[in-house]
Amino acid sequence: MSTVDQVPLIQCRGITKVYPLSGVEVHALRGVDLNIAQGEMVAIMGASGSGKSTLMNILGCMDRQTGGSYLLEGIDVSTLDDSQLATLRNRKLGFVFQRYNLLARSTALHNVELPLFYAGFSPAEAKKEALLALEQVGLRDLAGHRPNQMSGGQQQRVAIARAVVNHPLVLLADEPTGALDTVSSVEIMQLFQRMHNERGVTVIIVTHEPNIADFCPRKVVMRDGVVVSDDNPSGSHRTMEEA
């Protein structure tokens, strides 16, 4: 069933993460093995303290692992320097956070333009691309609004537009519905599904809510810093028909 010759997009081998916390070492990850193929939509589940957010930070190149290896597109991320990681985050990865993390004093448009600016776009080019992304999340009309003039669901859609505006390979979301009501949560998850289907982007969503995880074909469950269950441990790509 698996296509062995295809290199998985994400390959984690024995990832550990140790935080020194007031003299005591906290082992957040104790050896995570995980493969994710191009085009998958994966939910990483687990109780708080299970290490899922720590794993998310490492997968998103926001933090470095203490041990083990992490290959993204076959490249060992630990060999890259800070500025190469910044470029990686800018071009290959898109982030969505629980609390949206939009710049409070900037308009929706400017928030979506930001990743493009860091990629070297001119203001005119950035505006064009950002408006397209806002249109895709259905908020073109709110381009001039500031975060405090928008609902939580709308803010999170702006954040998703910001995450996909640079056409990343992977969309990472850390509890993206954690601050939203049920209706908005469903809307947001449907938007992730649409991005996944329309753009073919790999989506990784960290959540502790089973009904949110149900939107994802593959579920990975973590406990105490290790993966305890995985629908598809090989990481080979499964089409919807196969599933």
Binding site: A86, R89, F95, N101, Y118, A163
Partner: peptide, 16 residues
């Protein structure tokens, strides 16, 4: 600090 974190997450380098 959070703003700096956001800027870094979406691709700002240390130099930026």
């Amino acid at each position: 600090t959070r703003e700096i974190g956001v800027r870094m997450a979406i691709g700002a380098s240390k130099r930026d």
